[in-house]
Design a protein around this nucleic acid. Sequence first.
DNA 1: TGACAAAGTGTCAAATTAACACTATATTAG
DNA 2: CTAATATAGTGTTAATTTGACACTTTGTCA
Lengths: 206, 206
Amino acid sequence: MTKLQITVDIVLFTILERQLHVLLIRRLAEPFRGSYALPGGFVLENESVDEAAHRELQEETGVEKVFLEQLYTFGEPNRDPRGRVITVAYYALVANSHILRSGTDAADAAWFSLDKLPPVAFDHQSIIEYAQQRLRNKLDYSNVGFELLPEKFTLTELQLVHEAILGTNLDKRNFRRKILQQGIVEPSKEWQKTGRKPAQLYRFVD
Amino acid sequence: MTKLQITVDIVLFTILERQLHVLLIRRLAEPFRGSYALPGGFVLENESVDEAAHRELQEETGVEKVFLEQLYTFGEPNRDPRGRVITVAYYALVANSHILRSGTDAADAAWFSLDKLPPVAFDHQSIIEYAQQRLRNKLDYSNVGFELLPEKFTLTELQLVHEAILGTNLDKRNFRRKILQQGIVEPSKEWQKTGRKPAQLYRFVD
DNA sequence: TGACAAAGTGTCAAATTAACACTATATTAG
DNA sequence: CTAATATAGTGTTAATTTGACACTTTGTCA
């Protein structure tokens, strides 16, 4: 009998070129050597599962102190050819201003648009789809969109985040009305001066 | 080093006397011997985590083929005094017409109103609260309420289920309008004849 | 200084939601 | 047998929310 093991896997999202992207890492070890896979790894003896997720994300991508939430636990007996491995999946969100460092465990880390995912190891395809669905649902009733933006952002940038997550176009006036009357953003005194007409920068308020 | 183990715990809900109740089982073994706890147990080698949840629920309560959904995985290192035990929590729903049989593993199984829970073992209090919150949220965007009713039911019974879950009173006319124009129930040809004026019995349609 | 690109702004109709009270019908008690 | 009672069942109106829709402003760059 092989030992039962628990892993965490993290679906790390960001927005690049107006599209939702996922971070994948090329595996250096068997099984699925050379394939892309989600960042993740084994839960250690004296850490909570949440801590393991934070640690693995930090080790493999350099990303720290980001939004990270448990998604679902995948526990089919044969999901990992090495033996009985149950994985607790998480999803995480970063603004793309965050610097991405390749960790020691992982060779190639790269962002992939959800339309153009390469084949991925294990059941990670299902995990990614599940995460995307959760993110869409969550956008409806939470302020999760702000986690994909820097501290200050324009309303157009916020709208682009929503559109990338939902995969639809939104009406500019209706979107701004909704956000503003929720009272969850406040204007900063700064203006974004790139592009043509400067745009007001807002800040998230809780 | 003690071996890492995975358990499942199930928050089984039903409605009794217009109140949401949870099934608890008195523990026969240490730790927490004599305390109440959620039904559950260890995940076996060759079953999926979902299968383990179904199996444990069947063994400990006799309940089969009910709505059962994964809730959250609780993985704090010291949540179980026996060693490192990570639990995958589920919640399940039964109509109270289901017969409850005390299983072999469990001595006393009893229903408790959520207002009057006894002290419970491990971190099961948190798991129950988490389950209740999930159930409330889910009522908004799904048909989960029907799982707590027999095949045929009156609209008043359905309303009482919603009120028990939400902990609020609902307007009868608004409630009926909402349910009927969702088109998720159809009238059967039967009438409930208990009480005063007979009520039409409905059936859930998917 | 004119063309362009993105920012920013308001109205109206439709749909949804919330508040609200009486009538109908069977049972049971006197 | 009839009156009391308990629960079923039923519509309207006002307020709110949502969705559709187009033009003006303002800075940059050619």
